[in-house]
C-alpha cells in the first residue's frame, strides 16, 4: 500500500515523513548509518577493502605496477584513482563507457585525494627518472544506496593503509630490475581524509539537512548524488562541494561542519580498529 502511495505522490509521501522529523527509513535527520569495513578480502589485489554502509557497498582494489616517471616530474610516482559504477549496482546505469555520474564521482574522489596530499608522490619513486610505482586504485560500487563518495573515500583509505610495497633493486648499468616480494614496506600516509555527504531538502519555508542520505533521499533532493560533500583531513577541511538541492544558509552550514568533523573521527576509529584486527590476525597466522 505504501509502495503505491510512494509512486503516485512521491513528494507528499516524503513530506509526510519530514514533517514528523523522521526519514522514510526510520532515521532522524542527523543519524548516520553504521559502517561495516573489511580489509584484504581480495587476494589477487595488492590491497583491498570492502565497505558496507547501510545499503551502499563499495569495494576498492589496488594493483601495483612499475613505470618510468614523467619527464617533467622525474621524482614522482603515480596514483590513479577511478570509480566505476557498473549497471550491476543500480538500474540508473547502463552498460557501456562510464556514465556522466561515474566520471563526476571519479573526479571528486581524485580531487579529494590530491588535495589532502595523503600520499606523497615522491615516496612512490624508486629511481628518479628511471623507475617509479604506479598505484592503480579502482573503486567498484556493488550497490548504490546513497552517499557514494563517503564510501569510496573510506574504502580507499583503508586499502592504502594496508598496502605494502615490495622492495625493488635496480641495477643502473644493466637496467635490470629485481622485485623481492618477501621484504615489504608499508606505504607512508600523511593524513586521512574522510568525506561526509548531506542532502538538502526544502520543506515549506525551511531547509532540512539530511546526513548520510540514502539513494531515495538523494533522488528526492534533486538528482545526481549528494548535495553537499564535506571532507575533513585531520582537522582541516580538504574539500567542500555543494551542488543542487536547496540553497544553504549560514547556521545550517555550521551544523554541517560540526557533524562532518565528528563523522571523520568516527570513521577514522573504525578504520583503525579494522586494520588492527587484520594485522593481529596476520601476525599470529
Amino acid at each position: 500500500m505504501s509502495e503505491v502511495y510512494k509512486l503516485i505522490h512521491p513528494v507528499k509521501f516524503f513530506n509526510d515523513y519530514i514533517s514528523k522529523n523522521v526519514r522514510p527509513d526510520g532515521r532522524s535527520f542527523s543519524e548516520q548509518r553504521n559502517i561495516k569495513l573489511n580489509v584484504d578480502a581480495i587476494k589477487t589485489a595488492d590491497a583491498s577493502a570492502l565497505i558496507k554502509c547501510g545499503n551502499t557497498s563499495v569495494i576498492c582494489g589496488i594493483k601495483l605496477e612499475l613505470a618510468t616517471p614523467k619527464a617533467e616530474e622525474p621524482n614522482k610516482g603515480f596514483l590513479i584513482t577511478n570509480v566505476e559504477l557498473p549497471p550491476l549496482c543500480s538500474s540508473k546505469y547502463r552498460p557501456g563507457p562510464p556514465s556522466d555520474s561515474a566520471q563526476v564521482t571519479s573526479n571528486i574522489v581524485s580531487d579529494i585525494i590530491n588535495n589532502s596530499k595523503c600520499v606523497d608522490l615522491t615516496d612512490l619513486c624508486i629511481v628518479p627518472d628511471k623507475l617509479a610505482w604506479v598505484l592503480y586504485c579502482d573503486m567498484l560500487c556493488l550497490d548504490n544506496g546513497g552517499s557514494l563518495v563517503d564510501a569510496c573515500i573510506i574504502t580507499l583509505m583503508a586499502s592504502l593503509k594496508t598496502l605494502r610495497l615490495p622492495t625493488v633493486t635496480y641495477d643502473p648499468e644493466t637496467e635490470d630490475i629485481k622485485v623481492d616480494t618477501n621484504v615489504q614496506t608499508k606505504l607512508k600516509l600523511n593524513g586521512l581524509p574522510i568525506a561526509t555527504s548531506f542532502a538538502i531538502y526544502k520543506y515549506m519555508d525551511r531547509n532540512v539537512t539530511l546526513v548520510d542520505p540514502s539513494s531515495y533521499e538523494e533522488d528526492m533532493c534533486g538528482g545526481l548524488g549528494a548535495n553537499l560533500i564535506l571532507c575533513y583531513n585531520k582537522g582541516f577541511l580538504c574539500s567542500s562541494q555543494k551542488f543542487g538541492g536547496s540553497n544553504f544558509s549560514v547556521d545550517c552550514e555550521e551544523k554541517a561542519l560540526k557533524i562532518a568533523k565528528e563523522r571523520a573521527q568516527l570513521a577514522e576509529e573504525v578504520i583503525d580498529v579494522c586494520i588492527k584486527n587484520y594485522e593481529s590476525k596476520t601476525n599470529t597466522v
Partner: peptide, 21 residues
C-alpha cells in the same frame, strides 16, 4: 587513451614480471 577515465602511464607493467618465480 580512454578520455572518460583517469589513465596511468602507457608503459606501466606489473611488478610480478620481475619476481624470481
Amino acid at each position: 587513451q580512454d578520455y572518460r577515465r583517469f589513465n596511468g602511464p602507457e608503459d606501466s607493467v606489473s611488478y610480478k614480471r620481475f619476481t624470481k618465480d
